[in-house]
Amino acid sequence: MGANEDWYEWHRPYDEPGSPLAARLAVVQRHITDWLDSRPGELLTCVSVCAGQGRDLLGVLEHRDDARRIRARLIESDPRNVAVAEAHIARAGLTGVEVLRADAGQLGNYAGAIPADLVLFAGVLGNVTDSDARSCVAAFPALCAARGTVIWTRTRQPPDLTPSLRGWLAEEGFEELAFEAPPDATYSVGVHRLTVPPRPLTAGRMFTFVR
């Protein structure tokens, strides 16, 4: 992650009602909930990229009676955020969720967690170069299981990359299930499902944080 950002302190606005981060979190959690409800009774896998404190996924699973059918890996490099996520997991009894303290930009750190039915890519695409954003989208078919879903976020502050991201996702074989871009905010949340066969994962680096 970027060396100039304190990614633990970055989470504080999540606790401020009405903040853009809190509003975005609610949208992401709603889509996670909708995804779970759309696949009742299935054993499902999830990977969360640059998971931070895991508030999006953990905040949903802790309130569900069927949380045990989810196997998830949260990949996060900041040790303080890892500790918060691990404490949340223990408190909620989410035995199927693990946190890996590692660089989510390195594809080798996904071994054993992919292909995943759900890939959470929140808070990543606004902190990488446009070239790396394209590389991320190109890697999505290797991260996803068949018919896997990606939930991603990106700011629409100029220059707005979201039109390109949505086009790249279509090129990579994803259908758009939802795209939310509130007129009173700059964040956006996309939900896309893979419609082509998953691809093998290749070694290397997917992205580097620049913020």
Rank of each mutant, 00 (worst) to 15 (best):
G2M: 07
E5A: 12
D6V: 11
W7G: 03
W10R: 15
H11C: 08
R12F: 01
P13W: 07
Y14S: 11
Y14N: 11
P17T: 04
G18E: 00
S19R: 06
S19T: 09
P20S: 13
L21N: 13
A22L: 01
A22P: 01
A23V: 13
V28I: 15
Q29I: 03
H31P: 00
L43S: 15
T45V: 13
S48A: 13
A51Y: 03
D56A: 14
G59V: 14
L61N: 07
L61E: 09
R64Y: 13
D65H: 12
D66V: 00
A67I: 08
R73P: 03
L74D: 02
E76G: 04
R80H: 09
N81D: 15
A85K: 01
A85L: 05
A87F: 02
I89L: 05
A90W: 02
R91E: 12
T95R: 10
L100D: 04
A104V: 01
G105L: 06
G105K: 12
L107W: 05
N109S: 08
Y110L: 03
G112V: 12
A113S: 11
F121M: 15
G123S: 10
V124C: 04
N127S: 10
V128F: 03
T129L: 04
D130W: 10
S131L: 14
S131C: 07
D132P: 03
S135V: 01
V137T: 05
R147T: 08
T149H: 03
V150S: 05
V150M: 07
W152H: 11
T155L: 13
L161K: 09
P163N: 02
S164Y: 04
R166P: 01
W168I: 06
W168A: 09
E172W: 04
F174Q: 02
L177E: 12
E180H: 05
P183D: 03
D184Y: 02
S188D: 09
V189R: 04
V191L: 04
V191H: 05
R193P: 13
T195L: 11
V196H: 12
R199Y: 02
L201N: 03
G204V: 13
R205P: 09
M206K: 12
